[in-house]
C-alpha cells in the first residue's frame, strides 16, 4: 500500500503550487499513472481523498489518466501495446524492446475555480 506515500507526494506538490500561485479552490488534480508503474489507481484515489481532509485541497477529486504500456521492437521496428506484462514482440517474438510508455507517475495539472 505505497499508494498512500504516492498520494502524499501528489498533495505536497499540489500544496506548493497552491501557495505559490495563491489558488483558493482546487476542483481536481490530474495525474497520469502508467500500467507498469506499480501503482494501483483506485488505491491511489482512496488514499488521496483520505489525506486531503482539512487541507487547502479538501474536496478536490483525483483525475487519473491510465497510460497503457507500449513500445517498439528493436528487431523488427513494430510498435505495440504491452498487455499482461509480456515483454515480447507480438510480431517477431523478440524480447529486445524499447518501452516508451507505461512507467508514468506524473502530476499533470490542477483544475481551479
Amino acid at each position: 500500500m505505497h499508494e498512500l506515500a504516492i498520494a502524499e507526494s501528489i498533495v505536497n506538490i499540489a500544496l506548493r503550487e497552491i501557495e505559490q500561485k495563491s489558488i483558493t479552490t482546487v476542483q481536481s488534480a490530474g495525474v497520469r499513472i502508467g500500467a507498469i508503474s506499480g501503482v494501483n489507481p483506485s488505491a491511489l484515489e482512496f488514499s488521496f481523498e483520505a489525506i486531503i481532509v482539512n487541507t487547502p485541497l479538501s474536496g478536490a477529486k483525483l483525475k487519473v489518466e491510465e497510460i497503457p504500456a507500449g513500445g517498439i521492437c528493436r528487431a523488427c521496428k513494430t510498435a505495440f501495446e504491452v498487455t499482461e506484462f509480456i515483454f515480447v514482440c507480438p510480431h517477431c517474438f523478440s524480447g529486445d524492446l524499447e518501452i516508451n510508455q507505461g512507467q508514468e507517475l506524473d502530476i499533470a495539472y490542477l483544475e481551479t475555480e
Binding site: I6, S9, I10, N12, I13, A14, E17, K21, I23, Q27, V31, L105, D106, I107, A108, Y109, L110, E111, T112, E113
Partner: peptide, 16 residues
Amino acid sequence: MTQKIEIEKKILSEND
C-alpha cells in the same frame, strides 16, 4: 470558470 493550471512534474520528483 474552471481554470487548468499545468504542473507536469513527476510525482516522485523529490525522491528521484
